[in-house]
Design a protein around this nucleic acid. Structure first.
Length: 310
RNA sequence: GGCGGGAUAGCUCAGUUGGUAGAGCAGAGGCCUGAAAAGCCUUGUGUCCCCAGUUCAAGUCUGGGUCCUGCCA
């Protein structure tokens, strides 16, 4: 398998990733691949800050609008879907730009994911029952026995990940740790990674104005429309920030202003987590939001592309 | 005006029979291999509204203020 070749633009929400990506993609005549766990969903346009139809017309975008709001999507599906697209673009001599704030999705492309089967329902219910009967400490002890290395890196309270490791062990007969070992032999990727940094205070104020803008653009109308299409507010898409906060308002249980405030707050929390994630990564180029030299970036990206020799 | 309820961390509030305070949220830092816009971890000294009194000891009891708030007028 050939190494995947791509450029990434990463950064917190509202840092200006999309506009830099557009500019680069147009200049280099390449495609954009979204790495955003919410732009995956159809009909959810305003709240997820999807590119406009004009932008999508000007540059070919991938991994946007690929499932309905009631579908479960995850990193595994993303990895499979996006990997195919990158491979075929690479085969045509195109090096795409991966843009998005879902760091985990980009990590999966850079480092791969081991081939995990669907977890059989009986395995899930088996451990769910144990969890209900004996509690999270008990299932953590089970993991300590089954996969001590995994237990060592997972906090006992992180029940979701404790369960996930147990599921893998039970359904494949191989521990998660061993899967990781095997995965190391897989080929990975060659990428040029750009990080857009932004001052915290500035980021927070941009988030607040962006949400106000979304409301002016008709966010509430969009949410109503999706609900009218028959999608329940319980479905996966509505777990998105900028959507879930407005459900109480639409049900008449909360004031609009309070919902707006919550949406801003959750977006700030999210941006903070993103910054923590990105902080530990190594980037080829770190630039400051709204304060960078496009041509300097372009030169470095071009130099990377030339070296790939495809 | 009458009768109540309240005033404790940036916000919402707990504080048992008096022993100088604690949760959630926010904020900050961190983790992260199929929920990742998710999930998880760490981090809380603040004139306990003010004044006086009782007491070895008062957020906690008593009296008096001040300011909110509910009902009745």
């Amino acid at each position: 398998m050939n190494k995947l070749k791509f450029i990434t633009i990463q950064g917190p929400t509202a840092s200006g990733k999309s506009s830099l990506a557009m500019e680069l993609a147009q200049t280099l005549s390449t495609d954009i691949i979204s790495a955003d766990s919410r732009q995956i969903y159809r009909y959810m346009n305003i709240g997820t800050a999807k590119p406009s139809t004009e932008e999508m017309k000007a540059v070919q975008h991938h991994m946007i609008d690929i499932v309905n709001p009631d579908e479960v999507y995850n990193a595994g599906r993303y990895y499979q879907d996006a990997e195919k697209i990158i491979s075929s673009l690479n085969a045509e001599g195109v090096i795409p730009i991966i843009v998005g704030g879902t760091g985990f999705y980009i990590k999966s492309l850079k480092e791969g994911l081991f081939d995990s089967p669907e977890i059989p329902p009986d395995v899930v219910s088996y451990y769910d029952e144990i969890l209900n009967d004996k509690g999270s400490d008990f299932i953590y002890k089970l993991l300590e026995q089954a996969d001590p290395d995994a237990a060592g890196r997972i906090h006992p309270n992180d029940t979701y990940r404790v369960l996930r490791s147990l599921y893998i062990w039970k359904s494949t007969g191989v521990t998660q740790t061993e899967h990781w070992e095997n995965q190391k032999s897989q080929s990975k990727s060659d990428s040029f990674d750009i990080f857009i940094n932004i001052d915290r205070e500035k980021l927070y104020s941009r988030i607040n104005t962006r949400i106000t803008q979304m409301l002016n653009d008709g966010l509430i109308k969009e949410i109503k429309k999706i609900l009218n299409m028959g999608f329940s507010y319980n479905c996966p898409g509505f777990s998105s920030i900028g959507y879930k906060e407005f459900i109480p308002y639409l049900k008449g249980e909360a004031e609009l202003n309070d919902c707006v405030e919550l949406a801003c707050q959750h977006t700030r929390n999210y941006a903070k987590r993103q910054l923590t994630w990105f902080r530990k990564l190594d980037f080829d180029l770190t630039i400051l939001s709204e304060d960078y030299n496009f041509y300097s970036i372009l030169e470095q990206v071009k130099s990377f592309v030339t070296k790939q020799n495809i």
